[in-house]
Design a protein around this nucleic acid. Structure first.
Length: 260
DNA sequence: TACTCATGAGCAA
DNA sequence: TGCTCCTGAGTAG
């Protein structure tokens, strides 16, 4: 489930299980040909920025992006690789398998900086002075592009994907087709605050929860969302059918009554 | 068994 | 805008 919260969770697992010790890195599938360049060296740092994971090893930084198919598999004991494992990370008593990522590549020197410079603020990264929040509000406020597209643009907001996009806009009562520049700055700021809240829950729980009254405890799969994948079903607030459309190649869900 | 779909994004035209 | 990358889960038959 690769939206930003998953990646932050994974970074935490890497810190817990691998940071500070030498890690054996292999590519059972053979497609990650640079594995040998970092294998056996220490993992110094593991951090997430939006949907990207940066693993800093002594010789280079490994950048991983799951894309739409990518997945992690964890195990506390050695098991034979099953299926297409792009990269395998092993240290004492811990093993992580990476499958189907869009990106798994080594970066050297300032390549990381060049890459992160293109990314927008991440609601899951500490924003002590509120500068990141302001940066997001400003980017949206001066754009004529629809807010539905802006929330999916990783240079505007890093880490939000199709699920959080749909749910955040519903919770804010904003129609996804509204141009960014016509939305009051205060409301845009609220969307940021809401993203911080919801995605933090996502990191803690490992699942995306977005409904008031269903943010804690056990939540049934069918009860999780307001609009995402609920096209044709009655809106949980007003009863009108949830709409669906394609926006910039992705499915967009919203309620035409609650989101004006 | 075959087909469809997916929480992403870069690139060419 | 459309194509492509790439893997696995779910579903129809």
């Amino acid at each position: 489930m690769p939206e930003g919260h998953t990646v932050h969770r994974t970074a935490g697992q890497f810190r817990k299980h691998f940071q500070g010790q030498p890690v054996t890195v292999t590519s059972p599938q053979g497609r990650f040909t640079d594995a040998s360049a970092i294998s056996g060296t220490k993992l110094l740092k593991a951090e997430a920025w939006g949907k990207q994971l940066f693993l800093t090893f002594e010789p280079a930084v490994l950048r991983i992006h799951l894309g739409i198919y990518g997945k992690w598999g964890w195990s506390a004991s050695h098991v034979e690789p099953k299926g297409q494992v792009r990269a395998r990370f092993e240290a004492t008593g811990q093993l992580a398998d990476l499958r189907g990522p869009t990106a798994c590549e080594l970066l050297y020197f300032d390549e990381v900086g060049l890459l992160t410079a293109k990314l927008g603020p991440d609601p899951l990264r500490p924003d002590i002075d509120g500068a990141e929040r302001s940066r997001f509000v400003e980017r949206v406020s001066r754009s004529r592009v629809s807010v539905g597209q802006l929330l999916m643009d990783q240079s505007v907001l890093a880490g939000v994907g199709n699920v959080y996009r749909a749910e955040l806009l519903f919770r804010a009562g904003i129609n996804p087709y509204t141009p960014g520049a016509t939305i009051p700055a205060e409301l845009i700021g609220q969307v940021w605050d809401d993203a911080v809240q919801l995605m933090s829950i996502g990191v803690k729980r490992g699942i995306m929860l977005t409904r008031e009254g269903h943010l804690k405890g056990q939540v049934k799969k069918d009860d999780r969302y307001y609009v995402y994948k609920r096209e044709g079903l009655p809106c949980r607030e007003c009863g009108k059918e949830i709409s669906i459309a394609i926006m910039a190649t992705r499915k967009l869900y919203w309620c035409g009554v609650c989101q004006r």
